[in-house]
Structures are given as C-alpha cells and as structure tokens.
Design a protein around this nucleic acid. Structure first.
Lengths: 282, 282
DNA sequence: AGCGGCGATACCCCAGCGGTATCGCCGCCC
DNA sequence: GGGCGGCGATACCGCTGGGGTATCGCCGCT
C-alpha cells in the first residue's frame, strides 16, 4: 500500500463525502473514487458503505482509519526526524520538547536549567501544545520528547519516566462563596450551575456538547474564570503565578496527577537521553 | 514520502550495495539510484556515503533506516489488520496470538482453555515465533496479541499486563557433574568451557560471534544439550516435559522472568480485550 | 415529472517510473 | 602504467497508471 492511498482513504473517511475529500486533497473527485475502489478491491474488503445519503464506514473501514492514521504518523515522523538528524550532523543539534501550554511551568523551567547546565547539552526547542495534542506531536515526529500528565494524557505506546505527582485544585473567581473554603470535594465543583466546567476542543478541532463555555487556551480559561463564567480543576502547580482575582482551593478526592517525561520507544537518541536524565534528577 | 521510496531506501541501507538492493527489489539499478538521489534532494540530506568501495550510511541515513522500518511495519499492519477485520465482518472472527516456541507451554494451554470457555470467545490462531521475533510480528500486524518474556523481549511501545513471574533453571545433560547440585550460581554456568551457551540468530538471520553452537529452535537446543555440546538457562516452566536425558538445576541469581501479555496500544479490539481478560484471571 | 446532489464510469492526456545503453571513476593486477 | 572489472550516475526512451473533463445513473426531494 502506498501512503497516497492511505491519505486518500483517511480524507474520505474523515469527510464521509467524496467531493469534499477530493477538494481537501486538491484533486478531482473521479480519481479519488477510483483510488478508493481499487484499494477496496485489492484488500478484498468493503471499506465504505455508499448510501444514498453520503457514505459511512464499515467495520473494516474503521480499522483501516485507525491504522492508517498511525501509519501516516510514522511516515511523517520518519521524514521529520531524518531532516532534523541532517541538521544535527550539520552542526545544529537540538531536541524538541513538547509541553502543555500553561502546565508544569515551574518544573519545565527547572528541567531546562538543569539540562542546560550539563556538559554537552544540546539546544532544546520547546513546543507548546494544547491539551491532548502532545501524544500526536510525539508520534508524528514534530517533537522528540514530551511532558505528559497522567491520567489526562494517553501514555500508551511511549517509554516514560515518572517525574512528579501532585493533587488538584479548583480555580474559582476570588469572590465566589466556595473560594473561602479550606478544601472541597469533587462533587461540589462539578456541575455548579453558575460555574460550569469549560469545553476543550477535540483533536479534530470540534467541541463536545455541553453547558460550559468553549476555550482554546489557558489565557481564555483564566479570563473566563475571572469573569465568573467557569471554573476549572487543575494540578496544584497551576496555582503558581495565579492572577490575584482568582482563587485556588484543593479538591481532596480529585485524582492525583503524575507528570511524566515520554519519548518514542525506538528513538532513544543521546540528546533525548540527556534530557531524560536531567528530568529524573530533579 | 511514499512507501515505495522507503522500501527502496531500506533495501539499499541493508545491502549497502545498489546492485544487490535493486536485484532484491526486482528492478534495475538505475531507477534505484535515481529514486534514492531524488529522496536525498527532497529531504535536503545526504543519506548515503558513496565511497569507492561500496556505500555506507550517514547519520541521517541511520535515523531514516530506523524510522522507515517502523513506518513500513505500520503500513503493513494497516493492511493486514484491515484484511482480518473484513474476515471478522464476514463471520470468521479470530485473533492471532504470538508465543515463543517452546516457552510457557503450560500457561499458553491454560490461557487457551480459559478463553475458549468464555461466552462469545472467538477463535485463537497461535503463531509460534523464534526468540525475539514476537515484537516485530506484533508491530507489523501478523499478530494481534503476544506473550512476551521480560527482560528478554522488548516490551517498549506496547500495552502490557503482567501474568506470571518465575526463576530460571539451567538445562544440563543428565550425567553432567553439575546436574546433581541442588542449585547453582550464574557464574558457575556461564562460560563453562565444555558446555558453552548456544547462539541464537539475530532478527536478520545472522549469528553473533562466539564459542557456542548455533541453534534455530527448541528441538535443536535440547538435542545439543543431550549431546553434551551446550547448556541453556531458561525459565522454570521450561523444565516441564523435559526429556529424561536432561536435568534442570535452579540458578539462584539469574534474573527472574516475567511473562506478560502485550498488544499494540491503539488496537484494543473486543477480541483482544477478551483474551487479555482471560489471561489476567489465570 | 423535474431537478439537484452525489458517486461511478468513460475516455483522454501526460508525468513519472522503469528499462537499456553508456559513461566516469577508482582499485587492482599483470 | 595501461588494461580491466566493478559500481554508481547519467542519458534517453517507452509505457503504465494516475489525474483531468464530461457524463451517466441513482435517489430523494419538491
């Protein structure tokens, strides 16, 4: 199978519409129809159900969508990592570290300091991601190593090293009645009608249904909380550097969050190893 | 990048010879030279050092070789798993379980029994592998789930569940002086001049250098030991069903071996989940 | 019945892949 | 040192197959 066929199939499977998929791929619709048809014939499997109202995935199609995404990520990673290896050989060694924007700021700063102090440390490019983006960024080679947060991020498929475990706090407007409490339970803060939990975008950019406001980044979140339109449950370290119009109250029964450093299991370059070593000595 | 280019590059990188690589790929040498040249130009990186005596890999080339193998495995896995998903939809559901030939026989039998007794259990095809082959078989989609043995097998990149931990024994000819001892230390059995440890083939089929005889499977191994030409350190469970002309003596300080069940993190089908559930209840 | 949306088919064209012939370079050996 | 052989690169050609346009067939809606 060629990656071109996989890209074509993924486009159709995501759009569930040959015309739109062709538009997205920058080709005409007929060659796309033919390519998918040929793919189905070669695999000996129906991938799409052509109904009169658009198309839908078959079971085999759903499997191929999942596997094709992984395979395309691997191919992209091969290309990116090779390009970066060439730069390294040309005298510009660097590692790309993915971190969630607005999380673990303290730890990240310490990590970069400790690593920079080591002899022979290479330059570290920090790639800030939205929530849930890090795993993908690591898989497709845009990053070499990432800071993830269990249980929020999926660490499956990566090698990891635990760095730090902490409880969670709820961030509230400073004037809110609950803000004066010494601590809270989870059921007291989820489903507050006046302060709903915000909705973060899915990897594809769409938002889940629900009552809360839509947020895309940390700034939007703090602003919404300050405006009294939302609250948020975040790891303790998120309270450092908090705006003065916000308050943080520990949530005792919220799951504890573990910060881990993760990297693709087969790419243990010396540069990544150095960063991991620095992280574990924190 | 197209998989064709990756396949071409892997062939050249493995053969380190354009002519032989072309032969292996079933094409002529000139288009291969051109394809690699075009790839290098597009990546903006030298992948191969063309010396007067054959070719060698550059740093970037070594990175691409590693990444390309992973990517090609992922593409193959996509194809295989889609084919199998189609068969499942057509009413022939099955799971392929990879196990090391000659290891964990007892556990494997119990696992298959327990799983078969569950309601709605699908057929299990057992794929027996040589040592170290399981990870590859799982990565390229020939198997859906595997029994691995830490610390021998590399479990990086898979989801795993521990099943069983055991010590190791050394298998000796029944008449050997050490066979009467109640237990042994590792340094007493490694480097016995009369009974060297055998050499297993690497993934590429070649054998490491060393004094021991070359073995390819379990039968060869037991026969060589019975002939007094080798000994072997294996998990305790390897002593069940031992030929009567062989003896097993516990090796106290050999690393304990953990049998784990492993599967690719992103492909948790219900069939795989059922098998994992059966395994964890053993 | 007419129309519009959507995927499949028919047919054509050309880019790109692969093949053959040949070159250029470098060791090697008599 | 000149001839030779091995190996990768280049030149050039032919054709396959991927992509484009036009159109069909089917279905649902009005």
């Amino acid at each position: 199978m060629e990656t071109r066929e996989l890209r074509y199939f993924v486009a159709v499977a995501e759009e569930l519409h040959f015309g739109r998929a062709a538009l997205r791929l920058g080709i005409a619709q007929p060659p796309l129809s033919r390519a998918i048809g040929a793919l189905e014939r070669r695999l000996g499997a129906a991938l799409l159900e052509r109904g009169s109202r658009g198309v839908s995935l078959t079971g085999a199609g759903a499997v191929l969508l999942r596997e094709a995404r992984a395979a395309l990520d691997a191919v992209e990673a091969a290309e990116r990592r090779t390009r970066r290896a060439a730069l390294t050989a040309a005298g510009h060694p660097s590692v790309v570290l993915a971190a969630k924007a607005g999380a673990s700021g303290e730890l990240l700063a310490k990590l970069l300091d400790v690593h920079a102090a080591e002899p022979g440390a290479v330059a570290v490019d920090v790639l800030l991601c939205g929530p849930g983006e890090q795993a993908g960024v690591l898989r497709d080679g845009r990053a070499d190593v990432a800071l993830l947060h269990r249980p929020f991020d999926d660490t499956a498929g990566f090698d990891t090293e635990d760095l730090h475990t902490e409880g969670q706090v709820v961030i509230l407007p400073a004037g809110h009645p609950l803000a004066v409490r010494p601590h809270l339970r989870l059921d007291e803060v989820t489903g507050l009608p006046d302060l709903p939990l915000p909705r973060w975008p899915r990897p594809d950019g769409s938002f889940p249904d629900g009552p809360g406001p839509q947020v895309r980044d940390h700034t939007q979140l703090t602003q919404l909380i300050a405006l009294g339109r939302a609250c948020a449950v975040v790891p303790e370290s998120g309270r450092t550097g908090l705006r003065e119009d916000l308050a943080a109250v520990p949530v005792l029964d919220a799951p504890r969050v573990t910060t881990v450093i993760a990297w693709p299991p087969h790419s243990r370059s010396t540069a990544v190893a150095g960063l991991v070593r620095a992280a574990t000595t924190l």
